[in-house]
Lab assay of single mutants.
Amino acid sequence: HAATELTPEQAAALKPYDRIVITGRFNAIGDAVSAVSRRADEEGAASFYVVDTSEFGNSGNWRVVADVYKA
């Protein structure tokens, strides 16, 4: 099962156990969220919340930071 994305309210009520950072070329924010979901799932997380997204220069590469939560 894939890790689910939390709302800001849900994330605020929970304590993350880790923070992950992924970088890559994403065509849309949805693609980045899917990549975070896969990584969170690999780490055994039940859910995640994207904290920050930023573009690296003009290369089209993105850096996505997310907190991950157990259950």
Rank of each mutant, 00 (worst) to 15 (best):
His1Asn: 08
Ala2Thr: 13
Ala2Ser: 13
Ala2Gln: 13
Ala3Arg: 02
Thr4Asn: 09
Thr4Phe: 14
Glu5Phe: 06
Glu5Cys: 13
Pro8Phe: 14
Pro8Ser: 13
Glu9Ile: 09
Ala11Cys: 06
Ala13Met: 13
Pro16Asn: 03
Pro16Cys: 07
Tyr17Lys: 02
Tyr17Trp: 06
Tyr17Cys: 10
Tyr17Phe: 13
Asp18Ala: 15
Arg19Ala: 03
Arg19Tyr: 06
Arg19Cys: 05
Ile20Tyr: 03
Ile20Met: 05
Ile20Arg: 00
Ile22Phe: 01
Ile22Cys: 06
Thr23Ala: 06
Thr23Tyr: 14
Thr23Gly: 03
Thr23Met: 11
Thr23Gln: 09
Gly24Thr: 04
Gly24Met: 04
Arg25Val: 11
Arg25Gln: 11
Phe26Gly: 03
Phe26Pro: 00
Asn27Trp: 10
Asn27Cys: 05
Ile29Asp: 05
Gly30Leu: 10
Gly30Ala: 14
Gly30Ile: 12
Gly30Glu: 15
Asp31Tyr: 02
Asp31Thr: 05
Val33Asp: 01
Val33Asn: 04
Ser34Ile: 13
Ser34Tyr: 09
Ala35Phe: 05
Val36Arg: 01
Val36Ala: 07
Val36Trp: 00
Arg38Val: 09
Arg38Tyr: 06
Arg39Phe: 09
Arg39Tyr: 13
Ala40His: 01
Asp41Lys: 15
Asp41Ile: 15
Glu42Gly: 06
Glu43Cys: 15
Gly44Asp: 04
Gly44Arg: 04
Ser47Pro: 02
Phe48Thr: 00
Phe48Arg: 01
Val50Phe: 03
Val50Ala: 00
Val51Ala: 03
Val51His: 03
Val51Ile: 11
Asp52Asn: 10
Asp52Gln: 12
Thr53Gly: 06
Thr53Ala: 15
Glu55Ile: 13
Glu55Leu: 10
Phe56Arg: 05
Asn58Arg: 09
Asn58Gln: 12
Asn58Tyr: 09
Ser59Pro: 12
Gly60Ser: 05
Gly60Thr: 05
Asn61Pro: 04
Asn61Tyr: 15
Asn61Cys: 15
Trp62Tyr: 09
Trp62Pro: 01
Trp62Asn: 03
Trp62Leu: 07
Arg63Thr: 13
Arg63His: 08
Val64Ser: 00
Val65Glu: 06
Val65Leu: 05
Ala66Val: 13
Asp67Cys: 11
Asp67Trp: 10
Tyr69Glu: 01
Lys70Ile: 10
Lys70His: 13
Lys70Arg: 13
Ala71Arg: 08
Ala71His: 09
Ala71Gln: 13
Ala71Glu: 14
